[in-house]
Amino acid sequence: MSGLSVRNVTHRYGPRTALDAVSFDVAPGRFCALLGPNGAGKSTLFALLTGLLAAPPGTIAVAGHDIRREPTRALARMGVVFQAPTLDLDLTVAQNLRYFAALQGLSDRIAAGRIDRALHRLGMAERAGERARALNGGHRRRTEIARALIHEPAVLLLDEPTVGLDAAARAAITDHVHGLAREDGLTVLWATHLTDEVRPEDDLVILHKGRVLRHATAGAVARGAPLTEVFLGLTGEAA
C-alpha cells in the first residue's frame, strides 16, 4: 500500500526488547499519533523507520518501498522532523533549506522555487537571510517542518516535534500538521507523549514497553472518556 506500513517489527538492544512485534498501517491523508510514555520505544521505531538502525526483523514500507530492499527510494519518499534540532544555527534559513534540498537531489532551480513558496507559506520570506540562531523555538520547528516537505514526500514522520515549545507554538504546529494530512493528503506519523495533541478523528497507536496496546481512531479508543485518563489507565495497567 502507499502510506506507511509497519509489520511485525522487533528490535532488541542486547537482552532488552525495545520493540516487540509492532504492527500498524497509516493510510494516505491520515494523521496517526504514536502515543507512548518516555521509553515506550518511539525513538527506536523512528530510528528503524529512517534507516538509522539496521532494518529489523519484520517489514517497514514507506509509500510502497521496503526500507530493507529499497532504502534510498523509501528515504526519498519520507520527510523527517527529528526530536533533536537539526537546523545549522550558523547558517541562514535559506542556506539551511538549500543544503537539505541538495541532499535530496533537487536541482537549484526547482529548489529555489520550492524554498520560496515554503518560506512564503510560513510568513518567513523576509527572514530567509537571517541566521537560524535568530529564530525562536516555534519558528525553528516550523522551518524544520517546511524543510522536511521540500522534496514533496508522501510520508511525514515527526518525533515529538513540540518538545520545548510554548503552548501557542505547540497548538499552531499541531494544527499546521493536521492540515497537511487533511488538505495535502500526506501520511503523517506524529510521535508524542502528550494526549492533548491528539484529536478524536486521528488514528492512534498506543505504544508501551515496546508493544502496541491499542490501534484505532482516538475517538474509538477513548469511547467518550478523556483520552488522558484512558492513556494513563492503559499504560498504568500494563506497567
Binding site: T72, V80, Q83, T86, L87, F100
Partner: peptide, 11 residues
C-alpha cells in the same frame, strides 16, 4: 545535535 541524522537520512 541531530544534523548527522539529517545527513544520513538523505536518499
Amino acid at each position: 545535535m541531530g544534523s548527522m541524522r539529517l545527513l544520513l537520512t538523505a536518499p
